[in-house]
């Protein structure tokens, strides 16, 4: 076959291609993570990694196992649906600790905490309780609303605020 006599160099070039492809396949089998393709075109273990991230908010269920008394107070008041950490901040460090007393949460300051939700603005739904700057006349909210877990007006302290 004389027509093939002069094709040697072409086969060498093609051989380079095949060689590169084989190396590629070899490396690929070695490099691609084992769980890739387990559920789809991604690393299946990525889901495990994501689920294993640490928690910072323990969730109100955790709080309520110990603080059942406060949960009961809350349940009957206006803040029944406000979860603990919404005001107290992330407490997984306290709630999930072997010794919770080692990480005592800091008590929130009502002077800055309450207005985060209750500051008056036209932009809030009208039926949501809101107060403007004059309302407290500089006093901390808990002066009158003594129990933030069930923030009805404490009648004994009724005085300054309208």
């Amino acid at each position: 076959m004389s027509s093939f006599k002069n094709t040697g160099h072409l086969f060498r070039f093609a051989g380079l291609f095949v060689l590169a492809f084989l190396i590629f396949l070899g490396v690929r089998g070695f490099v691609v993570p084992k769980s890739f393709g387990q559920y789809g075109h991604y690393r299946g273990n990525a889901i495990v990694d994501d689920a294993a991230r640490p928690m910072f908010y323990a969730g109100h269920q955790a709080c309520e196992t110990c603080h059942a008394d406060i949960a009961a107070t809350k349940a009957s008041g206006a803040h029944a649906h406000v979860n603990c950490e919404a005001c107290h901040g992330p407490q997984a460090i306290h709630a999930l600790a072997d010794d919770p007393t080692a990480h005592i949460p800091v008590k929130p300051d009502s002077a800055t905490l309450c207005i985060r939700c209750h500051a008056k603005t036209l932009a809030k739904p009208k039926n949501f309780p809101q107060v403007d700057g004059d309302h407290s006349q500089g006093m901390a909210c808990i002066t009158c609303h003594t129990n933030p877990h069930s923030p009805a007006m404490d009648t004994a302290a009724k005085g300054g605020a309208k």
């Binding site: 928690m55 908010y57 969730g59 979860n83 919404a86």
Partner: peptide, 11 residues
Amino acid sequence: LTTACCENCPT
């Protein structure tokens, strides 16, 4: 548990 945003939404 629920998400951090849902857990902490007061309303």
